[in-house]
């Protein structure tokens, strides 16, 4: 696989991008302003697009250039634009009632990252791939997954939840670019498209929530129990 025979420069570039994306997910966790979430997500998507292009270059997968372009267009520009429109329509700027303060959630996120590192190094050892880049890719993938779930559970504005979901998928995308760059093109493209549809659906739904429930905070969604 690509990650095993990688020249040092490429390996450090990949690591840099992976770590930067992970840090950006912590930016989302440490802020309470919805705009920050969106910018962090946008930059993260740009980084992933860059990663796709680099993997394509070093691994000789020309189709990944296409993936990079689509990632840039869809995840880097279109999705943030759609989320921005939702934000403008809602006139909600930040999380009002925090379940976990940003500092506390950063600590929880750090714990997630440690756990992810533990799992990643165990898995890496079990399959006999102990190269830093493999373990790092696995770790970042799992960390972003866990941080995404953390966002989903401690943030309750509709927009934060959408971005939490997108963060989950960004993590998978980032990890899979490094670990399995040969994954068929069709699937990656369709998943990108699928995300677009998902966010469009979310947008419509958020509008309905606003008009019919009168709020977009999931704390106000408590009629259905038992």
């Amino acid at each position: 696989m690509l990650a095993v025979h990688l020249d040092p420069l490429a390996a450090s570039l990949f690591s840099l991008i992976a770590i930067a994306s992970m840090l950006l997910s912590f930016v989302m966790l440490g802020s309470r302003w919805l705009k920050d979430y969106m910018y962090a997500f946008g930059v993260q998507s740009w980084l992933i697009a860059l990663l796709s292009a680099l993997v394509g270059y070093y691994g000789h997968y020309p189709e990944l250039y296409l993936v990079a372009i689509f990632t840039l267009l869809f995840r880097g520009l279109l999705l943030p634009y759609l989320v921005m429109r939702i934000l403008q329509r809602l006139r909600v700027e930040r999380e009002l009632h925090l379940i976990l303060r940003p500092s506390a959630s950063l600590v929880a996120g750090a714990a997630c990252a440690l756990f992810a590192l533990l799992v990643a190094s165990r898995v890496g050892a079990a399959i006999g791939l102990t190269q830093n880049i493999v373990v790092l890719a696995l770790m970042v993938m799992l960390t972003m997954k866990l941080v995404g779930f953390l966002m989903l559970s401690v943030r309750h504005e509709a927009v934060s939840q959408i971005l939490g979901l997108l963060l989950l998928e960004n993590g998978i995308f980032l990890g899979s670019q490094i670990l399995i760059p040969g994954m068929p093109l069709l699937i990656e493209l369709v998943i990108l498209f699928d995300l677009l549809v998902a966010v469009a659906c979310f947008g419509v739904l958020v509008r309905y929530l606003m008009t019919h429930v009168g709020s977009t905070s999931s704390l106000d969604l408590k009629r259905l129990v038992g």
Partner: peptide, 24 residues
């Protein structure tokens, strides 16, 4: 209605989050 919007929101969030694990 407020209830059905709540159900729809829970549905899409919980299931999308869950199913992203299947993608992983």
């Amino acid at each position: 209605e407020a209830e059905s919007m709540e159900a729809a929101w829970k549905y899409i969030i919980v299931v999308s989050a869950g199913i992203s694990l299947a993608l992983l």
